[in-house]
């Protein structure tokens, strides 16, 4: 459904994403894992069509990402991005204006679940509230692909269960969810596949239940195996 071939992005002399080829299939929730700066965000931004690759391609259902794919791919960046003059209601109106798959009804329901008021100004929201708002407005779309960059960032422990429940409710056989996180434990039961990225290169894509069954290791164990010694080296 979402496929990258030899996808590469360089910033000046630094290679953020290095010849990554992979195909993500619908009907799965993928956890995209790697320490900060490993290229998760850059890969997602290219898949969302916000960033242009240095070389290689990324396609959605066989078409290069662009105008058409943006209708079906819901992307949530890790940084807050709403216009500073907006209230929570304005944010919903904006999505309603631009995305045919947005449901105002679903948006209001998610706002209630996350205890957000439509009159609140986005400028004055706490970081936890802003994080919830981003998730609410993104999940209120009925998209084919959801890419959530660090959905648990800034969200306190108690609210994480709620967020996780909302994300799981969006999963379906014809949909693809891609969640990046450095909070590996939060993703353990939610994801069924994991994409491990290191220094911009793809390490592997694994089926998690299969990995537990055959190797007896958790996603977090595998994460430590892949990245552990590099962190020691850096320290």
């Amino acid at each position: 459904m979402l496929k990258s071939e030899e996808l590469t992005k360089k910033f000046g002399g630094k290679t953020a994403v290095d010849h990554v080829s992979m195909e993500l299939e619908k009907g799965h929730i993928y956890a995209m894992l790697g320490p900060n700066g490993s290229g998760k965000t850059t890969w997602m931004k290219m898949a969302a069509g916000l960033m242009k690759p240095t070389s290689g391609t990324v396609s959605f259902e066989g078409m290069p990402v662009g105008l058409e794919s943006r209708k079906h791919v819901a992307y949530m960046s890790t940084e807050p991005y709403f216009y500073s003059w907006m209230t929570i209601r304005d944010v919903g109106q904006y999505y309603e204006d631009f995305f045919d798959d947005f449901s105002m009804e679903k948006y209001r329901q998610l706002l209630r679940e996350m205890e957000l008021e439509e009159e609140m100004k986005t400028k004055t929201l706490s970081s936890g509230m802003a994080a919830k708002l981003k998730i609410a407005v993104t999940l209120a779309r009925d998209a084919s692909v959801y890419m959530l960059d660090e959905p648990f960032n800034g969200i306190d422990l108690l609210a994480r269960d709620e967020i996780r429940r909302c994300i799981i409710s969006e999963a379906a056989e014809d949909k693809l969810l891609l969640l990046s996180s450095h909070l590996v434990e939060e993703m353990e039961a939610v994801a069924d596949r994991a994409v491990f990225i290191k220094y911009g290169k793809l390490v592997e894509v694994r089926d998690l239940e299969e990995m537990r069954l055959t190797d007896g290791v958790s996603m977090a164990d595998r994460y430590r195996e892949i990245y552990g010694h590099t962190e020691v080296k850096q320290a």
Partner: peptide, 9 residues
């Protein structure tokens, strides 16, 4: 804030 604009179709 540009994401807001450039993620629209």
């Amino acid at each position: 804030q540009g994401y807001m604009l450039f993620m629209t179709p």
